[in-house]
Amino acid sequence: MAKKLLFNKYDKQTLFKKVISDPRERRVVSFYRYVKIEDPASFRDNLYEKMDQLGILGRIYLAEEGINAQFSVPVEEYSRLRMLVDSIPELKNIYFNDAVEDKKESFLKLAIKVRSKIVADGLDDKTFDPSDVGTHLSPLEFHEALSEPNVVIVDLRNNYESEVGHFENAICPDAGTFREELPMVEDILKEEKGKKILLYCTGGIRCEKASAYLKHKGFEQVHQLRGGIINYAKAIQDNGLVSKFKGKNFVFDDRLGEKITDDVLTVCYQCGKPADRHTNCANLGCHVLFVQCEECAAEMENCCSESCKSMVQLPEEEQKKIRKEGRKHSYPTHHLTRKLVGK
């Protein structure tokens, strides 16, 4: 009997054509759970086979500590997905976070990977229990708590995420990774242990780990937004309230952002005009993530610098040869400074 294929075998261009030509409407969904998974490798293969049968495309990380998933599913298969997930003991009744905006090409393939942790936190503390989390607040409870006196609001996302959108009066640590952020947040809050702490992130998973970490470090009033910004935006919209989250919610798929309000909180790294459009440099040897307005994108051919622009103007085969040979190019970064224009 032939072994089932449990990974993608097509190139990106072929995958894009397949997704675009599929007439089915797709819904973007995410979920996570800290739960003991005894054999992540076998769990992975079983999950891949069943999700692939439903036409699911996305990115899923598994570890002994749990699961972290972001994907799109054909709308007609949504109920079958729910049944599939509930049939797996480790995932039964897991909360589905539906995206604010759906885009068919958000994901092009299904990738399920086994890692040491579902969120890289840099922690090596054997006494730390990630399941001992803070108090979950519903979006409406969190919305009300934001107006309470003496609360401390903390954004647990990376700086490139919070620069385009964040809650009013939030502390937005200037960290490029979650592992950098945890000790940074602990230090920022060291004089605030008696206050009510409100944590938020994109979908909730980083808050889950961070709230447990802060409790472990002696913080007593730790609260977190259930379902993250994604869940908050939907609840605010459904209840006709004015959002206290301003700007865009950065997301880790091809959309790179969901617009929550029309506020633009940062500027184009190249010309300084108000902009909130994240993009990756078109030079695959660079691929840096930065904010670029439409005008600069056209002028710079979606590149971050003149050297990268010169590179993408070369024939594709020559670009590939340069990348393959590992030649280094000096990419100027002085123009790629993040510029927040308001909080």
Score class of each variant (00 low, 15 high):
E306V: 15
G247Y: 06
D52A: 14
S106I: 02
Q319P: 05
V312F: 02
Y269M: 14
V119P: 00
R226V: 09
L189Y: 00
R115L: 14
L108T: 05
D11H: 10
D39Y: 04
E295P: 01
G247S: 07
N159M: 15
K320R: 15
M1A: 12
G285V: 09
D121M: 09
A99L: 09
V251C: 08
I88V: 15
S138M: 08
L84C: 02
G218W: 07
L225P: 01
E318S: 10
K9D: 11
V119R: 00
G285W: 01
I112N: 00
F107A: 01
E294Y: 11
I20G: 02
L256K: 13
E161Y: 07
D86V: 07
G194T: 11
Y10C: 09
R255A: 13
K50H: 10
N239R: 12
D39G: 03
M83D: 14
S147F: 05
S116T: 15
S330I: 13
D124R: 11
M1D: 11
S310G: 11
F31S: 03
K3P: 03
R26Y: 15
K113L: 13
E318P: 00
G66P: 04
D253L: 06
H216M: 08
K104C: 09
E77P: 01
V19Q: 04
Q221L: 12
R44I: 03
L47P: 00
E258K: 02
K12Y: 05
F219I: 07
N97W: 00
S211P: 06
K195W: 03
A175S: 15
F107H: 03
D238S: 13
E105Q: 14
P315V: 07
K209G: 04
E316K: 14
